[in-house]
Design a protein around this nucleic acid. Structure first.
Lengths: 254, 254
DNA sequence: GAGTGGTCTAGACCACGTG
DNA sequence: ACGTGGTCTAGACCACTCC
């Protein structure tokens, strides 16, 4: 069978459209149902065989979808018991077990920024990131808030690959991540994120923007975003206030 | 077939032994080969079909094994190209994409500790962890170093479930994690770890043990370890010096 | 004992990268 | 054109939980 059943489903236009794997579609549907509240915390999800029947797919596909949701921390599964919704009340949580969860984080907050133009990374910055010094990037800086006008949860410097400079002017603040917007416009997908976390003392500018005392402890998060061909498309350096930001993660059994 | 071939493999003693899934065995073998240097950084791993043949398993099993290794950050895979070793030179990296990687971290460092006995969590501690206040735990404290006698990379307070008190005296410092030792002795497995990370100012005791100025920025990592039946078996609260500890993670495409 | 999720097989077609 | 890993099917047996 497979996607070769082209008669009843005109879903394989060569352009774009629903060219996503079936398990992604199933996962999206379940995730939407959970976040929409159709399943309460602790509720039992349909069994695998029920999901197979409902979506007309094999167990492999259903299990792959559920695996995603489990990795995202939305569900827990127990042999013999079933699958239950357990998001751990993840408000303001920012797990990073996969790229998709970064989007979730972004969706719960707003990022406003300014474009500063091309710059060359200083020796120190390059060393901190692990990039060759003197490389050129398009520099943006901004502030992330949970609610418009609310207190900042991060001040961020963003450096974008100059190959993508043409798309920078089309970037818009809001709930979508920069790398999502860039990827959609330029036609790439971020498939790997590397992240370093340290505790440092706030510099003057950071302290000012975050409303903290100078030298107060802040969480410094450096992220490097890479696309399918291992190209670095974006680098972000964020400072999060130590007194109102907690980075939460979970790790399920493997 | 499956593990039901009990004639040629006396491997299903009720106690322990090789009751692990085939894909875990395949993954272990590949991981050992990689860490032993049989594959250099950038080398191509055997193809899936080659691994199927070599281990006499189906593609499902091989792919499950490779999925683990990819989650651990040891390999990268590209459709059309193949599977290559890419550990990112992960010395002193501490990713947490699964529980197994915590062990890796522990293996590269040494933890020395003292047992303080039973205590009740203070209101503040309980709130920070998200546990009911006043619950009783067995308290340990210790220091983690990369090399014996070297500078500390963490000072840690550990709280162990009082149900496991009988096994605490058998805990030994070294390269094995406490929850590993406890699990082996008491017969449970840690299947979920929750972790919160914040930046805070070092307290007097922490600063002293870490050799830092008081109020210098430190990374506070709180971990909650749970077993199969969702019981909290251990809680650890660590302080890592901001100037010599970086928490590195990666997130591969899902 | 019935039903759940976990493991596993033997196939298949496909998108993609490399020759 | 070929081989790679990615997706998917239709089965199977098993360990486990719950009634």
């Amino acid at each position: 069978m497979n996607a070769s059943s082209a008669e009843d489903e005109p879903g394989d236009l060569p352009g774009r459209a629903s060219d996503q794997p079936r398990y992604v579609q199933v996962a999206d549907e379940l995730r939407a149902a959970i976040t929409a509240g159709h399943f309460a915390e602790g509720d039992q999800l349909p069994t695998e065989s029920a999901l197979c029947e409902r979506h007309g797919v094999s167990r492999f596909t259903v299990r792959e979808a559920l695996r995603r949701l489990q990795a995202e921390g939305l569900i827990r599964r127990r042999r013999g018991s079933g699958t239950i919704v357990d998001t751990g009340g993840q408000v303001l949580r920012q797990p990073l077990s996969d790229v998709a969860e970064l989007l979730q984080y972004a969706a719960g907050s707003t990022f406003e920024f300014r474009v500063h133009g091309r710059i060359a990374l200083s020796e120190a910055q390059a060393a901190e990131i692990g990039i060759g010094a003197g490389s050129r990037w398009v520099h943006l800086s901004g502030v992330r808030t949970l609610a418009p006008g609310g207190a900042a949860v991060a001040v961020t410097d963003v450096y974008i690959n100059p190959d993508l400079e043409a798309f920078v002017s089309a970037l818009r603040p809001g709930h979508e991540t920069l790398f999502q917007q860039l990827g959609a416009a330029a036609g790439f997908r971020v498939v790997r994120v590397e992240q370093d976390i340290r505790a440092v003392a706030a510099g003057g500018r950071e302290a000012n923007l975050l409303g903290m005392a100078r030298r107060a402890p802040v969480l410094r998060i450096i992220r490097v975003y890479k696309d399918e061909s291992d190209r670095i498309v974006e680098i972000s350096i964020s400072a999060h206030p130590g007194d109102r930001f907690t980075y939460s993660m979970h790790s399920d059994q493997v």
